[in-house]
């Protein structure tokens, strides 16, 4: 079990009003699954993703990631967990401007306890996503798809337990989206655990399991035959 979430609640206070973003979510994800978390805006899928990514802490409930109870950790411990266990891929890539692809990929190892040979590990990650010939390119010299590949390489760098992608194809055209999804599918086939937050059914098609949220609760949770 890579993720085990029980009775997860998250409330926000806006003025005198309390907004309940997650109203008691139970979710378990096995190692090697490729899960799509879907839902309309306001369904709580972003809040769930932030908590799964250790960027946010639940108001109540427990969250166990790769054998560690992260729901009780402080800010510094969470930073360590994000560094070691989670690889983020964002909708808008979040590459550092004016910085070569290789340096962008190296970034997480700057904050790692055991960085090892940063350069060699970053080169391997870039090779894995098929950008061996673009290492010295800066983000403004790369296409959207290439940028997202750099971001995936960065997410793979620390060999995380969980790849967490937030609308990874939101800024890409259909053809490039398919390329990126094929990359995620390949990574899944290699045995990685992938969680993709999306509102697009075409993206969810690539996954082995689709979890739908509605009003802060899981509406449906079904295994599906992935597109390959």
């Amino acid at each position: 079990m890579i993720i085990r979430v029980t009775n997860l609640r998250r409330e926000f206070t806006v003025g005198i009003e309390t907004i309940r973003a997650l109203a008691g979510v139970d979710l378990s994800i096995e190692r090697g699954e490729m899960v799509a978390i879907m839902g309309s805006s306001g369904s709580g899928k972003s809040t769930l993703m932030n908590i799964l990514g250790c960027l946010d802490r639940p108001t109540s409930g427990t969250y166990e990631l790769d054998g560690k109870f992260v729901s009780g950790m402080d800010e510094n411990e969470l930073a360590g967990v994000r560094n070691e266990k989670i690889g983020f891929v964002f909708q808008s890539f979040e590459l550092l401007p004016r910085t070569p692809a290789l340096a962008n990929v190296e970034l997480p190892l700057l904050y790692a306890k055991q960085p090892g040979d940063r350069r060699a590990r970053a080169v391997r990650a870039l090779e894995r996503v098929g950008l061996a010939d673009r290492m010295d390119h800066r983000p403004n010299q790369l296409s959207g798809g290439q940028k997202q590949r750099v971001a995936v390489a960065r997410a793979l760098l620390t060999d995380p337990a969980l790849l967490l992608a937030d609308e990874p194809t939101g800024n890409l055209d259909t053809k490039t989206s398919d390329e990126i999804m094929r990359l995620f599918a390949d990574l899944h086939d290699e045995g990685r655990t992938v969680v993709i937050v999306t509102h697009e059914p075409e993206i969810a098609e690539w996954c082995t399991r689709v979890v739908r949220l509605r009003d802060g609760l899981i509406e449906s949770d079904e295994s599906v035959e992935p597109r390959r």
Binding site: L55, A79, L96, Y111
Partner: peptide, 16 residues
């Protein structure tokens, strides 16, 4: 700000 957000997401502590 976004760079700081990213750095934190990939594991930078507040003191870093």
């Amino acid at each position: 700000t976004r760079e700081i957000g990213l750095r934190k997401a990939v594991g930078a502590t507040p003191s870093a």
